[in-house]
């Protein structure tokens, strides 16, 4: 249960004090190896960014560039011409935003019920919810596709949004979150004569916002990047989301326009980057939260 909390504690192995002069070879070696790993991890992304800032005709020239010394924005202008990127961004934002909000609300409600309300069958129901986490999306996709067709929603954005709103993981996270809040708040409220609804509304709902934010950020990150479901559920290009649009752009263009495709890739990364800069801790905590079971 405690793994995520303690991730960061600084550890100093009991190393006997040595003379100051001698360099710590262990530390140097570790940092060199870690640096190599970091360069291999970030290098491809740096190359993508700096190549997108070369002119299309220079984009595949070697040696490769990893730093955009002379940024050239022609590729960005071109990607807007070759791809209806505004529509793609709007679709992606609409789909992802509605899924995130839907998950935040439904997960908060269900999580609160599982954590703080008493009802028969609570344990069994929660187990079923957890069990659904193990079923891969590919297994249910065929019946979901038919269900969506039956509802007359095929090739609409709703086909992507509705099935993604009920969330087992989000419910699990919110339940854990509510369990972590002090219970004397509820006691105080009930002594004051508040109904269960009132207790939720005025005591717990305001406190739930940080937990809901984690659910929302995780949902946004996951569905913004999602490829499999949009590939199946959307047919016409006007309903494509960003990853789908970019993959089809790469298919349509030859290798001559690398920088144009990469400009699109970089644009699609911006929300993820913003989330990375401002919500990294929340993302890390959320992603590994299920691990404490």
């Amino acid at each position: 249960m405690t793994t995520t909390t303690e991730r960061v504690s600084t550890r100093t192995p009991a190393v006997p004090a040595r003379s100051r002069r001698r360099p710590n070879w262990n530390l140097v070696l570790r940092i060199v190896l870690l640096m190599i790993a970091a360069v291999l991890t970030l290098g491809p992304v740096m190359w993508t960014l700096s190549t997108s800032l070369r002119s299309p005709s220079e984009s595949f020239k070697l040696p490769p560039s990893f730093f955009p010394w002379n940024p050239d924005f022609t590729s960005y202008a071109q990607v807007f011409r070759q791809l209806d990127i505004v529509l793609l961004v709007l679709n992606s934002a609409l789909v992802t935003g509605l899924i995130a909000v839907g998950q935040m609300v439904t997960a908060a409600m269900a999580g609160y019920a599982f954590a703080n309300l008493k009802f028969r069958g609570r344990g069994a129901l929660f187990s079923i919810v957890l069990a659904t986490m193990m079923v891969p999306v590919q297994v249910t996709i065929v019946p979901v596709f038919m269900l969506i067709r039956g509802m007359g929603l095929s090739d609409t954005l709703l086909a992507l949004i509705l099935p993604a709103i009920p969330t087992a993981f989000g419910t699990f996270l919110m339940r854990q979150y509510f369990l972590g809040l002090p219970t004397d708040l509820a006691e105080a409220a009930s002594i004051d004569g508040a109904s269960p609804w009132r207790t939720f509304r005025s005591v717990y709902a305001p406190l739930a916002v940080p937990g809901m934010a984690i659910v929302g950020i995780l949902a946004f990150n996951f569905h913004w990047n999602e490829f499999f479901r949009p590939l199946i559920m959307t047919i016409s290009e006007q309903n494509f989301t960003l990853p789908l649009g970019l993959v089809s752009l790469q298919g349509n263009l030859g290798t001559g326009s690398i920088s144009v495709v990469l400009a699109g890739v970089v644009l699609s990364m911006i929300p993820a980057l913003v989330g990375f800069i401002f919500g990294q801790r929340a993302l890390q905590d959320g992603l590994t939260a299920g691990s404490g079971k």
Partner: peptide, 22 residues
């Protein structure tokens, strides 16, 4: 450990299914 004041971390720590006496 407390110097990382993220609520999520706190949430994950709670183990026993608490049932506040509403």
């Amino acid at each position: 450990r407390r110097d990382r004041p993220k609520q999520a971390a706190k949430a994950v720590k709670a183990v026993k299914p608490g049932t506040p006496a509403t």
